[in-house]
Write a protein that binds this DNA or RNA. Structure first.
Lengths: 223, 223
DNA sequence: CCAGTTGCGGAGCGAATCGCTCCGGTATAA
DNA sequence: TTATACCGGAGCGATTCGCTCCGCAACTGG
């Protein structure tokens, strides 16, 4: 009953398969959007469909697990950002990290799966961390003052799904991926520069409400 | 045989249906991505499937026509931008216009339809206009000098598909749409500020090649 | 060397959805 | 009224979906 270090070779393979499945799920979601099928995910992971369903009882359960891991990544990046001594570098690093590890690829499943208590908890933690990062940068005078945490969330979501990159990958043009990643890195940098506190004109309209973020994770209403 | 002003009521209805179909097609594409079905498009237009297929012989033909119209919108916005007396306002207006009329919603069909000669021609014209806008802004010293036309194209594409807005619409939360549009307008403004010429650090990496744009419209290779 | 056990891949099921055809019905024109 | 033009949508065959189930290979303890 000890679940300590010692594992059989079969268990080790199962564990590798699990990781491969989660990684594949994110990739296929990015490529196919809401369209993503379990068969495609299993194939991409180099694993049989049967193995997928031994690990997760349904497609929804797989996506819920994936969402949790994504929230963990967000929170780790946020803690790293807060830990950075320079408030601006901390914010910029956090945003860049979230964008680059594909935070946005989960957007298409928002509203199609139930939100587990774990997801809510991790999400709440993420909100706190983000608020702290933004507050610190603003306090240091390096962030233009009208920027809110929700602005930053939306910005991460906006940059996090790259139609260009997703489509290039879908077409299997691996030769273009490197250039696309580099091009997006420029866009991130441009956008971050737009966030910095220098003499600027005002932004249009009032800051966005955070309901733009939270409301969308409700299940589809029967209309 | 004269196709002058005088038309029957039935022809007028057919024409209205055509416009409704094109508008619906863009909306459904934004909401459902590559997934978009002709049934959904016809329903959204308030038109029978039969009417859609009387106007367009195939789904592909509808999408080709839609692409042409989108390129027309791009070109008109570009000409308006060039005509603006202030180079910066011209560029900013062009980018904003392209983003807001949903240029990005066509991204999911890139590579799934054949590119017609008309599309190539309009696209080439658009490239010229964009290059002129960018060159003029740079010449006036209002655009940070390392920005290329491809940077601007990618930026428009990136901002043009809003996961947030698309999903809100898909969920039928019309009450949130206004706030979402306003929130995106802030992001556009932030990003445009990032493009302006003021004292800044350098952008990471070399400028992106334009093949990132053109290559993706090839048909899916049989792999 | 041999059962016994464990996790594996994927054929295939019923249901849903796809692009598209075709026809009965209705408003307009003569 | 009859003839015509155009409409909506039922329904076709094909495809794809999430998921079940089972035969097989790989490892294990004796």
């Amino acid at each position: 009953m000890s679940d300590g270090r010692k594992r059989g070779r079969r268990q080790a393979e199962a564990e590798r398969n699990d990781h491969a499945l989660l990684r594949a799920a994110r990739e296929v979601l990015a490529a196919d959007g809401a369209h993503a099928s379990v068969a495609a995910i299993a194939a991409r992971a180099g694993v049989g469909i049967g193995s997928l369903y031994r690990r997760y009882r349904t497609k929804e359960e797989l996506f819920q697990r994936l969402s949790e891991l994504s929230l963990d990544q967000w929170n780790e990046a946020a803690e790293a950002g807060l830990a950075h001594e320079d408030p601006w570098a901390g914010l910029a690093g956090f945003v860049t990290a979230c964008v680059e590890f594909g935070q946005g690829s989960l957007a298409p499943i928002a509203g199609t799966i139930d939100v587990t208590p774990e997801m809510w908890a991790k999400s709440a933690r993420g909100d706190e961390l983000l608020a702290a990062i933004v507050a610190r940068a603003r306090g240091a005078g390096v962030l233009r003052p009208e920027i809110t945490p929700t602005d930053v969330s939306l910005l991460i979501e906006q940059l996090g799904s790259s139609p260009m990159l997703d489509q290039i990958r879908k077409q299997g043009r691996e030769d273009l991926v490197e250039a696309a990643v580099a091009a997006r890195r420029r866009l991130i940098a441009i956008t971050l520069d737009g966030l910095r506190a220098v003499h600027r004109g005002p932004l249009p309209g009032p800051p966005p409400g955070e309901h733009l973020f939270t409301e969308r994770w409700r299940r589809d209403s029967p209309a």
